[in-house]
Amino acid sequence: MGTMNVEKIRNYLPHRYPFLLVDRVLEYEVGKSLTAIKNVTVNEPWVNGHFPHQPIMPGVLIIEALAQATGLLGFRTMGEEPQNDTLYLLVAVDKARFKQAVVPGDQLVMKVELVKRKGIMWVFNAEARVDGKLAVSAELMCAAKKETVA
């Protein structure tokens, strides 16, 4: 079991503002699961346009936040910090369900569980909750591979 603050997270994910969507890892168990949070604020870049008088976090950004959480679990499971030549890509989203809106002021609690790993492919069950209520669930498939230089 372990935790990660945002500085440690930045060692594992290449994302930076405004696209780093994991603020803290509350706990993880290598090869099993990870729980992280995203604090949704009124200062998010999407607030002015989605929607101007009633901001709702776009579902695609919630899926991206969950995918970033899978990346953290994947790299911790591989036992290494990613190198510049390692790409961790979201390759499929299945069974996505959006149950409730996520708005500024919410804290998104994301849990990802490793279902299986075969070669470079990883499959995860993922869910995001607000105040204990399910907001989004999905099955995510990701791939970790070395980038080839042409």
Rank of each mutant, 00 (worst) to 15 (best):
T3S: 12
T3K: 13
T3N: 07
M4P: 11
Y12L: 14
L13I: 06
L13A: 04
L13K: 02
P14T: 12
H15S: 10
H15L: 12
Y17S: 10
P18A: 15
P18Q: 15
F19A: 08
F19Y: 13
L20V: 02
V22I: 15
D23T: 11
D23K: 07
V25Q: 09
V25N: 09
E27L: 05
Y28F: 15
Y28N: 02
Y28W: 06
E29L: 14
K32N: 06
K32T: 07
K32D: 12
K32H: 05
S33M: 13
L34P: 01
L34I: 15
T35V: 15
K38E: 07
K38N: 04
N39T: 13
V40S: 01
V40K: 04
V42L: 13
V42E: 05
N43Q: 11
E44M: 10
E44H: 03
P45G: 10
P45M: 12
P45W: 15
N48S: 13
N48D: 08
G49P: 03
H50M: 08
P52C: 04
Q54W: 02
Q54C: 05
P55R: 12
I56T: 04
I56C: 01
G59F: 08
G59H: 09
G59C: 08
G59K: 05
G59N: 07
L66E: 03
A67N: 02
Q68R: 08
Q68Y: 07
Q68C: 06
A69T: 15
L72H: 07
L73H: 04
G74F: 01
G74L: 14
F75Y: 15
R76N: 11
M78G: 05
E80C: 14
E81S: 11
E81K: 12
N84I: 00
D85Y: 06
D85F: 00
T86G: 01
L89C: 08
L90F: 01
V91R: 11
V91N: 09
A92K: 11
A92Y: 00
A92M: 04
V93G: 08
V93I: 10
D94F: 02
A96D: 03
A96G: 01
R97C: 02
F98M: 15
F98P: 03
F98V: 11
F98R: 11
A101R: 10
V103A: 11
V103E: 10
P104F: 14
Q107W: 00
L108R: 02
M110Y: 06
K111I: 03
K111D: 03
K111P: 08
K111M: 03
V112G: 08
V112R: 05
V112N: 07
E113H: 07
L114D: 02
R117F: 05
R117P: 03
I120G: 00
M121L: 14
N125F: 02
A126H: 11
A126R: 07
A126P: 13
A126Y: 02
R129G: 07
R129S: 12
R129F: 01
R129Q: 13
D131W: 00
G132F: 05
L134K: 14
L134T: 14
L134R: 14
L134C: 03
V136P: 09
V136E: 01
V136G: 02
S137W: 00
E139V: 12
L140F: 06
L140H: 07
C142A: 15
K145S: 10
K146Y: 00
K146F: 04
K146E: 11
E147V: 09
T148Q: 14
T148D: 08
T148H: 09
T148F: 10
V149T: 12
